[in-house]
């Protein structure tokens, strides 16, 4: 049941201020995004149209804590098919960023490990300027499992066969234990610091 007195009419503007969320109000609820979404074959209840409608209504908390936000594959099928150019893939990204900021401020809890993965990925770029697979996996597993030790245990279990397969093909050797770094790493740091400061 929707309680009208709990709706936040400002929520849609909050999303539209976020890069990628600008086209939210163009949606006329035709559901083309959901009908074409490949995830619905696996999760029949997955429904980006509904997330948009809830956003337009101002169901701020329900939207920001919706675990479906973190299942999107960013495959862009919805964006390609939308007759109103809502750019749903970007829009969901904008909503995810608001949710992450709310979580950082301690206002809600995200029930997904995906933000930890994205953060671990960004930290590699910030530090090295290139993706460092091993560093990403180590940080992600540490965050996901709650401690360095537990993370390493789970990681070695998950990677046992896969890692050996890549090792045999020369794709995960001694070289991959160490990061490849760009020379100008200072600018990487600056980019992330600048953007963080700007978003407050």
């Amino acid at each position: 049941m929707i309680k009208t007195w709990e709706l936040d009419p400002e929520f849609k503007y909050e999303i539209m201020k976020e890069s990628g969320g600008e086209h939210l109000t163009a949606c006329f609820q035709c559901s083309t995004c959901t009908l074409g979404c490949p995830l619905t074959e696996i999760i029949p209840t997955y429904n980006p149209r509904k997330i948009i409608q809830m956003s337009l209504l101002g169901m701020r908390n329900e939207v920001l804590t919706n675990p479906d936000l973190w299942v999107c594959l960013i495959c862009q099928t919805c964006t390609a098919r939308c007759p109103q150019d809502v750019r749903i893939a970007d829009l969901l990204g904008a909503i995810r960023r608001i949710a992450e900021r709310e979580e950082e401020a301690g206002k809600l809890k995200i029930e997904s490990v995906r933000p930890s993965f994205d953060k671990a990925f960004m930290h590699q770029i910030q530090k090295y300027g290139r993706l460092y697979d091993m560093g990403l996996a180590m940080e992600y597993y540490r965050e996901k499992e709650g401690s360095f030790f537990k993370g390493m245990m789970t990681m070695s279990k998950d990677y046992k066969k896969f890692g050996m397969r890549l090792f045999k093909k020369g794709k995960m050797g001694v070289k991959s234990m160490f990061p490849v770094k760009v020379k100008d790493r200072e600018v990487m740091k600056k980019i992330f610091e600048h953007m963080e400061a700007e978003k407050g």
Binding site: S19, G20, I74, D90, G93, R96, R97, F117, D118, F121, M122, Q124, I125, G129, R130, L131, V182, K183, D184, V187, M188, I191, F192, H194, M195, K199
Partner: peptide, 22 residues
Amino acid sequence: DWNCCGAAEVEDPEIVYALNAR
């Protein structure tokens, strides 16, 4: 000395733009 494009994990378009501006 090219740098990472941001892949699918850097969700903020402005960070992606800055990374690729370089």
